[in-house]
Computed example of a mutant assay.
Amino acid sequence: MERPSVQVAVVLEREARPNAWEDWRFRIVEVVEQQEAFGTEPRLLFDDDKCSRWMFPAHTVELFRDEGEGYYLNLTSGQPVWFVMWRVDEADPSRAAVEAITLSYNEAGRWLDAQERVDNVPLQPHLVAWLEAYTAQHYKPEPKRRQRPASFLSPDERGRR
């Protein structure tokens, strides 16, 4: 069975010598839907020796049923976003590349726990609606259960909490 997906391209900006402590600073500028003209290989969009922008096209973002909670958390955060994981090239620290993209808050959290670099940029409104429809169909939050106050538990039960 095919999963819902969207093809996207990521624009990454590199700034040279942003301060006395950094040689390079990178940031994700935007995530846009893939267009045929973008091709499939990373390419330089702009470079003025101080700042450059690179496009990393042809990334597929798939939706998975078991990530429903992560999509729900993203949607209810106030501003749904793309989470973009990127890495600096170890052989050439003046270069970086986009590695993965997700819409799941939980998956982005796992990447951060693994010490990866993750930036986020706003999700376009029509894709928010797409993600909301998928999440509504495939994710039902667990009902909250009331916990008994510790004062109503025996001393043995309090120690097991």
Rank of each mutant, 00 (worst) to 15 (best):
E2Y: 06
S5T: 04
S5F: 14
V11D: 14
L12M: 15
A16D: 12
R17M: 07
P18G: 07
W24R: 03
R27Y: 02
I28G: 01
V31A: 11
V32Y: 01
E33H: 05
E33R: 15
E33K: 13
E36G: 01
E36S: 11
T40N: 05
P42S: 02
L44A: 05
L44P: 01
L45T: 01
F46G: 00
D47S: 09
D47H: 10
D47V: 06
D48C: 08
D49R: 12
K50I: 09
W54Y: 06
W54D: 00
A58H: 15
A58T: 00
L63A: 07
L63W: 10
L63E: 10
E67V: 01
E67H: 14
G68A: 05
Y71H: 10
Y71I: 04
Y72G: 03
Y72D: 14
L75F: 09
L75Q: 09
L75R: 06
G78T: 11
P80E: 08
W82R: 02
W82M: 03
W82I: 01
V84W: 06
W86G: 04
R87K: 14
V88S: 02
D89F: 04
D89Y: 02
E90S: 12
E90R: 13
E90K: 13
D92S: 13
R95K: 15
R95L: 15
R95A: 13
A97V: 00
V98N: 05
E99T: 12
A100R: 15
A100N: 10
T102Q: 02
T102L: 03
S104G: 06
N106D: 15
R110I: 08
W111C: 03
W111G: 02
L112K: 15
D113V: 03
A114Y: 05
Q115I: 00
Q115Y: 10
E116W: 12
R117S: 12
D119N: 14
N120R: 15
